[in-house]
Design a protein around this nucleic acid. Sequence first.
DNA 1: ATCCTCCCCTAC
DNA 2: TAAGGTAGGGGAGGAT
Length: 982
Amino acid sequence: MAGDEINNGFGECGYFEAKKSKLEEQFAAASDPFRKSNLFQGISIFVNGLTDPPSNELKQIMMVHGGTFHHYERSHTKFIIASNLPDVKVRNMNTSKIISAQYIVDCLKNKRVLDYKPYLLYTNQKTTQPRLVFGKGKNTSRANETVAVSMSETAPEPPPVENDLGNILKVLQLAAVAATSPKKEAADKTVADVSTLSNSVRTAVDPAFLGEFYKNSRLHHIATLGAGFKQYVCELRQAHGAQPFPKRNELRSVLTGKQELNADPAHYVMHIDMDCFFVSVGLRSHPEWRGLPIAVTHSKGGSAATDVPVHPQSDRQAERALFADRFEHQLHDNFRADKVRTGFEKKMSLSEIASCSYEARAKGIRNGMFVGQALKLCPELKTIPYDFEGYKEVAFALYDTVAQYTLNIEAVSCDEMFVELTDLVADLQVDVMSFVAHLRAEVRGRTGCPCSAGVGSNKLLARMATKKAKPNGQFLLAPGIDVLAYMAPTPLEELPGVGASMRHKLEQAGLRNCGDVQGTSREKLETLLGKKLALTLQQHSRGIDTRALVYEQQRKSVSAEVNYGIRFSNASECETFLRQLSAEVKTRLTDIKRKAKSITLKVMVRAAEAPIEASKFMGHGVCDTLNKSAMLQHPTDDVNVITSHVLKLMNEFDLPPHELRGIGIHLSRLSDVNEVKKENVLLQMFEKMSEKRKVEPTAVEVHEEPQPELELEQAEQQSQDDLEPQQPLDMSTTNTSINNATIDPEVLAQLPEDIRQEVLDNMDEHLQPKRSEPRDRKRRKAKDAARRSLPFPSAPPPSVKASAKKSSNGAQHLRQALRKRYRGGGQTDEIVMDYIDKVSNHVHPAIFEYISRPEVAVPQNLQGAAAAPSPPPPATLQNYLLGSNYKTMLADWVSNQRYPNHTDIITMNEKLAELVKGRYSSRIYDIMKHLCRLIKHKHEDICEWHMAYRLIEDTVQHHMMEFEGYHMMLAERIGCVMCEPM
DNA sequence: ATCCTCCCCTAC
DNA sequence: TAAGGTAGGGGAGGAT
């Protein structure tokens, strides 16, 4: 939908904002039929808890008026809308943007963005300046400081500041949670509410958990920043085109003196990497701490880290033994085995160190170590908090600095890249390392952070050189050296791609360093590692690396995973979270404008031997990991499709919800949104129906009536191939059939009773030519009622009749011709026949002519193998709108699309216009009535649909007026208080 | 042979 | 307390 922002972790950065020019935005707004204003442009909200108006209405307001609605709180979320929050929760939040929902309402009322300050829910702010707090020293307890609220919109929001009272409350809460351990299934609302409240944002049960988690997860930030910079390089390259780099000239004059004409045509690849990135960024504002052992971690260190609360159901000794065994004997990971052995003593902090200074490394501290263990190695270790905004800022500075000179950059991560220097050096006629020195100085100047760079003739050697260069240095692996000899003593684990597992395998075979591998036959390596890995290892051990730099990287998969804080007490909590996570991956998928064909659900389950509760607070403990995937027949980016598959996969695992410790959703086999040929879901659906009929031309599946609540169970009974909720309008894949087409039971279940009945009736009509009496009566009654409310008889008005009569000979002729064609092709098609019959009775000359063109009247795929490839005929839809099961199709369309597809609306308009011209007034009436009811009863109230309906209605009325000279009196109105025109 | 699918491994 | 994510490469083994 328009209004969604680019979300690659770069939401606030000026680059993308600037890139999306005003013009573009205006265009987007103008082309969006639902957009009413740009009132809330640039404003994003997250709704926490119950509000008035409720969350979904606020969402609609935001979307319709150009704002952004965040499904969870992100760092750049402008406002949090809430009514009131549990006190404890508030203490852990930055309250300077928590406002009442009335703000949105009032802005709308006044048609302008108002000052939000009067709407702040919490005015008694505590300090929100992290550096200030940080500067005061580590463990000083702070009472609630009342400081003027920082209204700076640009200032990044700091991590919340803890205070003693907050901690006490939290401990009390934890005890309360432990005391009320989930015994009975908490299906009823009160219990669920209680658990939500008492868990605060601790577990995934809390609606705000996902946001809170992602806000604080270092690994999430590392990953998304990395992906973001890969994208950034792409964008820079595309924006830059073939322009020159003016900065090079500047450099020319600075560096001319150092020019050393290099005769050899060496190939130069630079690898540049920030030194202990997170620490360096953290130290920008505290240069006086340079030289001290520093670690970046969530834990506050000191005594706070050696006396952490212990969950009554955890057992550190047992868990340590289990972990140690797994790491040592299964994964052969000495570092991690050692980490749990020495870092798991009771009461030591199990918070991990994201980054540590070289002074800390000198004491044996490593990234990834537990704080407790690190403190044992170095009691004076100073811990500093994360500064995710700072990392982004510095990373941009790094990339922008390099990008001044060349865009032949392969982004590796937010703080690391490969740069092709060959051309640059040739252009500048400077010594490579002089350029590197200059660049590093500039990076240091702009970021305040040191970096190291290595240069070699390929990526591998550049990386090796960087290792030599660190910290804060540079190194050239001279092109002339004996690479073989140089590599020989290098331990194998220093090669990229060699980790714990491979190191172990090679060690078992007596191979420890590159020299060992150099002298090993390829055959031996292949039996050990497989073909490709053997080749790479052998080449790498010889300093050979054939990988080219990749400047524009295409994403191949998208995922969202949470293995922290997963504690469900019942299936519905689990389902709620799965829905949230599905929405999250969907967002990530659409952000990169792609669709996925494969969905994988990954779960971590508590290992049978593991203690009930993990030692690490909200950690996953010792777990088994399971994967299950579903292959879709067509790429999708529909959240409902993703969700239903995810729920189904989870159901198939059949795991007790309270044993889950981690959940991940992976989408792969991506394709470009634009590559997915038919955006038009309606047309696509009709096409598929035809395909299906082609496959099973005569089979009529008879099914029992589906029960409404069968969502997963019924889906489960189907084979993978048959189930296809991602293509909701594809009736071929579902198990309730209408003729040869079928309807998704899920869709059916979602329908309101009366409409479902109608759909079923409609089906019966086809399944049993001799219809069951009661249903038929009911149906007729409805029809009669509709007729009575019509401003004119539902039979074609005289004029239509006249024209039909006039052309009746022609119609007869056409009907025969068409029948012949179908019979000739050896296929009978009930729906098409039905259509032919109907059409020939009512046909208007214009339509008549239209459908007389054979390639239009007869869908290609029904014409047999000889059919020429061409786009689906425009009349296909009309055929079906006139067909007898149009209701099913409308139902599928409305039920399965969260938001109406733009092109579908246009198609509807076009086809309805044709019906107007064909004077199918009664059918138009029925279509409009049915569509309106479907939209009104749509399981979730979505104003986009309301507006879509009005748009369609307006168009129909416009054509009615033009063609017939009057408006049609329609039976139903949307009547939505939110979006109804004044 | 070549592909696909389900993992495992690695890196940041 | 603590925030244990995410993407890509490739091997094993089976299907085509």
